[in-house]
Write a protein that binds this DNA or RNA. Structure first.
Lengths: 166, 166
DNA sequence: TGTAACTTTCAATAAGTTCTGAAACTTTTA
DNA sequence: TAAAAGTTTCAGAACTTATTGAAAGTTACA
């Protein structure tokens, strides 16, 4: 397989994966492109490469910077802004966990807390309370596990899971 | 908070969570409803409760059965089919992991394997190969970790992570 | 300060997805 | 076996989300 074909397949696959996980397809493709670019790229180059409009490119680049997966790079003597993708896989995964956790797990726990104040005055209310409680237990466990993962470094992750598997 | 309000909030929240994770909102709501129902419900009851059409109800109930999160229950002397949701939180999470892993992680690994055969004949091809390799390493690690989680039981999960956190 | 290069915004539109409901199909019962 | 009860399918409608592109905004420099 030549480089061009591999690159296209990769961008395509990463985009598809993103859209199955609720991430905008284009955002994932821009991320894929920047991950495999040895040099930083301008918004213009990204637009052309992925055949998207300036508005779309701009919005998704900004979102990726918000997520901490892409950085701005300024080249002296050049007015254009260049963008460089985070290359360290462990950092990429960590940033994604941090962002999704904040956006989804934490609001979920908040709602569950509200619901757990329900009056248990019938069979159905009891079943609701039990389910809510089970989810709360599970997700606060998941929450603290993820916090730990976020703080840990890559070697720790690999090492610990290797031990667990043995 | 009374039972009715809690129930609605719960169904609503679970539906929103689902749609952020690429799961059809209605499917998540049907699942939520069945999780908190002490008794099994007929398709008809589900339709009325969630105010959805028979077609929609049917499609999503079937999808949930495919995922192993909902079972059919036949009541003697009744021609209707009743549906009961999996109540064990650990089993629910495990089924979700199994399904998503099969649908997404495994195809991803397959594509990455194809791409890793790329000729490394320039700087860009090398960067592509490196990224692909890093992702492969990370995801096969994740893959085996999830396999292990799937086989493990709930107590093992809680116990091991508690040890890790200490 | 004017102007050219570049970036950002946003309303309109396109694309993608989910839902409806009527018709077709299947199963049960008399 | 006919009819009643229940279930499934699917084409088009409704809804949701993403994208475009032109206009407005910003910045750097002469």
């Amino acid at each position: 397989m030549d480089w061009k074909e591999g690159k296209e397949k990769f961008i395509q696959a990463w985009g598809a994966l993103g859209s199955e996980w609720g991430v905008n397809r284009t955002m994932a493709q821009v991320h894929a492109l920047l991950m495999i670019s040895p040099l930083s790229l301008s918004a213009d180059q990204i637009m052309k490469e992925l055949k998207i409009s300036s508005g779309n490119a701009n919005m998704n680049i900004r979102a990726l910077m918000d997520w901490g997966l892409v950085y701005k790079e300024l080249r002296p003597g050049d007015r254009k802004e260049y963008f460089i993708g985070e290359k360290d896989m462990w950092k990429v995964v960590r940033q994604i966990i941090i962002n999704r956790k904040k956006k989804e797990l934490e609001p979920m726990l908040k709602i569950l807390d509200e619901i757990s104040g329900v009056k248990e005055d019938c069979l159905e209310a009891e079943a609701l309370a039990k389910t809510v409680n089970d989810i709360k237990m599970f997700s606060s466990k998941a929450d603290s596990t993820l916090d730990m993962l976020i703080k840990a470094d890559s070697n720790w992750f690999v090492g610990t899971f290797m031990k667990m598997i043995k």
